[in-house]
Nucleic acid binder design. Structure first.
Length: 254
DNA sequence: ATGTCACCTGGTAGGTGA
């Protein structure tokens, strides 16, 4: 089973690339973030024509998530139950017996912004909900754009980024809180080295200079960890014409 | 060295978010 996540930064722009990507990689489940489409405009027909099931949850202009799967997705949940939020950031469902939770964690903008406490409160709500999800679904994967670089080795210039949003101790503590639930960072099961990133700023020649951050993650539960045989960042997709600023992340399960 | 990209509104540019 192959599961993946990709922040497409506008599905209206990236739909042709998505269809190409599905044909090449044939994932069993793919979580999308930043679709930036209201539900009435979601291109479900093109995705089903490609042989996939799809669940979606969007809003105008910003955010928006979707879950694409080869087999039927059941018990679909949109956003965090009990956590009032006008922003569309979560879609979860069960695919082939695995609970797939796709998230677009708030960016936070800057530590001084009012968006930063919103991010931290959102992460607290996510953790609390996941605790019950994990109890109900021992085989669980949490995939998405976390907008958190967990450690300095996930940052091209840790000195410059120290204390800045995506790298603050508070955000990293929230990431560790997710690990404390018994989740494991799939990528780090196989690769300990720095300089592996999933996002590169469009500005300042970020990608050509490999000035990036690893902020897109696939965390897996204890039960699922035993099934993970690989986890890679799909850098070539970041080289597309009109690329998203994020590369997909892919994990293989036995 | 904030150098890009995508969205909106209300334009034929400017503001916002990432």
């Amino acid at each position: 089973m192959k599961i993946a996540t990709w922040n497409v930064n506008s599905l209206a722009v990236r739909l042709p690339q998505l269809l190409d990507w599905l044909a090449v990689h044939q994932p069993d489940a793919l979580c999308l973030q930043e679709t930036k489409l209201t539900d009435d405009k979601f291109p479900h027909a093109a995705i089903t024509a490609a042989g996939y099931q799809v669940q979606w949850f969007g809003q105008k202009t910003y955010n928006g998530v979707a879950l694409i799967s080869k087999s039927v997705a059941t018990d679909v949940v949109r956003n965090i139950p009990g956590h009032d939020d006008v922003q569309a950031r979560v879609i979860a469902a069960t695919v082939e017996g695995v609970r797939i939770v796709g998230v677009y964690v708030p960016n936070g903008q800057s530590v001084e912004s009012e968006k930063f406490p919103y991010k931290l409160a959102w992460l607290t709500a996510l953790r609390n909900w996941l605790e019950t999800e994990l109890a109900a679904h021992p085989q669980l994967a949490l995939l998405g754009d976390y907008n958190i670089a967990p450690e300095d080795r996930d940052v091209y210039d840790p000195v410059t980024w120290a204390g800045q949003v995506l790298c603050t101790p508070e955000e990293r503590a929230h990431f560790k809180g997710l690990l404390a639930l018994g989740l494991h960072d799939s990528f780090r099961l196989f690769e300990a080295a720095p300089k592996h990133y999933s996002w590169w700023d469009y500005r300042m020649l970020g990608f050509p200079k490999n000035k990036g951050l690893r902020i897109d993650h696939i965390l897996v539960s204890e039960a699922l960890k035993a099934r993970v045989t690989s986890c890679v960042i799909d850098r070539p997709t970041r080289k597309n014409d009109r690329p998203s600023d994020h590369a997909p992340v892919i994990a293989e399960l036995s």
